[in-house]
């Protein structure tokens, strides 16, 4: 699960599954990364708010790979060890666009509702 670290205020709330896919696709849109780097990157960019657990990261990566949104290649990592680097496919890039659009629509809508109320 992707957990939102809400600074000790009760239980961390779970994010919906599709969101993790979007985060992974977005993270990979700039350059190829291995699993560890993806998790780190999401954590950093979100200002340590979003913590990606291995238990959901790897199933998600493998699922995206099976779906054909991302592809994998073994290459040398920064430390010189062989690691599995994931990058977006053309289809994945399109998927990212439409998911981003979706996300924007959804979050705007939620914003409106939350602010109205």
């Amino acid at each position: 699960m992707v957990c939102v670290d809400n600074h000790g205020m009760g239980k961390p709330s779970d994010l919906v599954q599709g969101t993790l896919d979007l985060l992974i696709l977005k993270t990979l849109s700039l350059e190829a990364k291995h699993g560890w780097a993806i998790a780190k990157r999401i954590q950093q960019v979100s200002g340590e708010v979003l913590q990606v657990q291995q238990g959901s990261l790897y199933p998600a990566l493998h699922r995206l790979e099976q779906q054909g949104w991302i592809k994998a290649k073994w290459a040398e990592s920064e430390t010189g060890r062989q690691a599995k680097f994931y990058s977006l496919t053309a289809a994945g890039r399109k998927q990212l666009e439409s998911e981003t659009a979706n996300w924007n629509r959804l979050s705007e809508a939620i914003n409106i509702v939350v602010q109205e109320a």
Partner: peptide
Amino acid sequence: FHKLVMQLRMLILRRTAAERLDDELQFH
């Protein structure tokens, strides 16, 4: 096409894929 290739690979190179997965998790 990509999916099909992927499926074929998962069928034929399943053992390799399993080793790769272990390796990937080990790296993490």
